[in-house]
Simulated scan of single mutants.
Amino acid sequence: MATTSPDLEAFLADARVAPEVFSLRPDYRALLLAVDGIEPGASDATTEALLTEAEASAREVLAATAVTDVPHIAAWRDAYRAFGAKPQRTRNSLEALTRRAGTGLPRVNRLTDIYNAVSVKHRVPLGGEDLSRYVGPPRLVRAAGHEAFDTVDRGEPVLEHPEVGEVVWRDDAGVTCRRWNWRQGRRTALSDSTTSALFILDALGVLTDEELLAAGEELATHVGRHGARVRIAQRLLRHDG
């Protein structure tokens, strides 16, 4: 795919969730947003306000509910157990961010700050990646175990491999995110120079389609403000088509 003017609709049309993943969780849905024409930038006053709002939302929820009892977090802990992961050791991205909200969410860059804020506010796991670094379309599969995952360990780049049967997002070059929504790889990571991005919002049954689409709409609104020629395409992947 050309990095200068990607065909966003064609890219999303080839995205897939494997049947064996739906066998684990027939209620799973993935909302994909492909975006091009972004003017990259550092964290700013606008993203600071979004993160502050998300932190306040999380603190309000956690004042009345233990983090592991928040409905969508609890559902994701069950989903992790279904493919053999231990949620107390490898937390889904929503749980990890929600736990950090009390002391402050990370400030990374404009795009990462936006999607982290939307994730916590809407209580949905959400990842963002550099679309120009993709090799082929995104697919959610159960790993064979030999796939490459480019990550960092103790500050040093390393090449890892997922466990057999682990649920992973991948493209033709290897794994882009391990354990469904636990850890994203280095190769497709967003950077301060990213101008085209793929955002993935993960939902299980306790989150309705309406709530999922509302999170996607807010994400698109905020990202769309960062560029005079931003283009956005969207696709919802689900078991029933």
Rank of each mutant, 00 (worst) to 15 (best):
R100H: 05
I38Q: 04
A42N: 10
A49V: 00
R25A: 15
L111N: 03
G41P: 10
A63R: 14
R107G: 08
R89A: 11
F83H: 06
L50V: 08
E53P: 00
S57E: 12
R29N: 01
E60I: 00
A82N: 04
F83P: 04
L62D: 06
A64R: 14
P40D: 03
S57Q: 07
L32Y: 09
T112R: 05
G104S: 10
G84I: 04
L97S: 11
E53V: 01
H72A: 01
T47C: 12
P106S: 06
R100G: 00
Y28L: 09
A56P: 03
A82Q: 09
T65W: 03
E53L: 01
L105A: 03
F22A: 03
L94N: 12
A63P: 01
T98D: 06
I38K: 04
V61L: 14
T46Y: 10
A101Q: 04
T103Q: 12
T98V: 14
L24K: 11
P26Y: 05
V70I: 14
G104N: 10
L51P: 06
T90C: 06
P106G: 05
A66Y: 02
N92R: 08
L62K: 06
E39G: 00
G104Q: 08
T47W: 07
V108Y: 11
Q88M: 07
N109H: 14
